[in-house]
């Protein structure tokens, strides 16, 4: 029997569309707001500030060691919303599917999204599917928008780093980038590295609850990697950032792959790591909280913010030398998220 595939009529809004909704989406996305099948989801909102973030996922391959485009879309959305110190509440999902995608793959992706959303405690409250002709998209793209609530009195932003802050990193860098690169290169280049894709809202919650206003900046170093994110924060906050290469955790397998492929781990994408800038006095406590969390067990204090070189990031190399860290220039590895 030939494999069942997505057809253009599955996105045409008629009988086939209803069938797809029933068979795949309602099976996994069981939120009451979504099950009403209205054109919109209605949510009761408590008062306060909303954190909203939108993102589009085009990762290639769509299934990779440690995750898939579905779990990545949920984690990416939850993490972006959480970097304001917010609790993610709800998210929307829009699928653009290329005609011919096996139905089983769409089902695997939907089920993985539901699982990821459950773990993160975020509701998928509204969804949409469009099917485009072969070649008009590459298998499947996912667009999301996430909504979260910022607790009262919490102000966390890339603009708020202060001179003397400690710079913390919640774990090893480069895992996602190398997992994708090795999946793409196939058997010619196989590593044991799996993507770090994970929801960070639980870790953020613990940090913010324990340290409150001492948490100044949270940022997840996705595309462009740790280097690019640090340069952005230095420039937004008008401070200098000093980091030590020997304190930045990098797995041996990632280091080895970087040597072979000519990548720099500082520029590789991460999907389950965060950078935190906290008041110097709170740094040890922040490190302790991170290390006791399952998604922060390899956390480290990697540097501090300084008055010198505002807007710039200076790295003390393992050799003891000093050099500037610049943003990623050009595209190192396209379609990683």
């Amino acid at each position: 029997m030939s494999e069942e595939r997505i057809l253009l009529s599955h996105g045409a809004g008629g009988r086939k569309s209803s069938e797809l909704t029933r068979r795949i989406f309602l099976k996994y996305f069981k939120d009451p707001a979504l099950l009403r099948l209205d054109d919109m989801a209605l949510l009761d909102m408590p008062a306060g500030r909303l954190s909203i973030s939108t993102d589009t996922y085009t990762v290639d391959p769509i299934f990779f060691p440690g995750g898939d485009i579905g779990s990545l879309a949920v984690h990416g959305t939850v993490n972006d919303v959480a970097m304001a110190g917010a609790d993610p509440i709800a998210m929307s999902v829009g699928f653009i599917v290329e005609e011919g995608l096996p139905m089983s793959q769409l089902e695997r992706i939907a089920s993985s999204m539901a699982r990821a959303a459950r773990e993160a405690g975020v509701r998928i409250v509204t969804a949409d599917t469009k099917v485009v002709t072969k070649g008009a998209a590459d298998r499947i793209f996912i667009n999301t928008t996430g909504f979260g609530l910022v607790p009262e009195g919490i102000h966390i932003s890339g603009h708020l780093a202060r001179e003397g802050d400690a710079v913390l990193l919640s774990g090893t860098v480069g895992d996602h980038g190398i997992a994708i690169a090795s999946a793409r290169e196939g058997i010619a280049f196989r590593t044991t590295v799996t993507s770090d894709s994970a929801p960070l809202n639980g870790l953020v919650r613990q940090l913010v609850d324990a340290l409150g206003g001492d948490v100044h900046v949270l940022r997840d170093p996705t595309r462009g990697g740790l280097a690019t994110v640090l340069v952005e924060i230095a420039s937004q906050s008008g401070v200098g950032i000093r980091i030590r290469e020997s304190d930045i955790p990098v797995r041996d397998a990632v280091k080895g792959a970087c040597e072979l492929l000519g990548y720099d781990p500082l520029y590789l994408a991460n999907e389950g790591k965060l950078v935190a800038m906290v008041a110097q006095g709170a740094s040890e406590r922040a490190l302790e909280i991170m290390r006791s969390h399952r998604y922060g067990s390899e956390a480290a204090i990697i540097g501090e913010t300084v008055r010198d070189n505002p807007g710039k990031v200076v790295l003390k190399t393992a050799m003891g030398g000093r050099r500037l860290v610049d943003k990623l220039s050009g595209e190192m590895l396209p379609r990683i998220c």
């Binding site: 790295l315 190399t317 393992a318 050799m319 030398g321 000093r322 050099r323």
Partner: peptide, 9 residues
């Protein structure tokens, strides 16, 4: 040389 900061040493 640049990446390892050798000049500064």
């Amino acid at each position: 040389i640049f990446r390892t900061g050798i000049k500064s040493l």
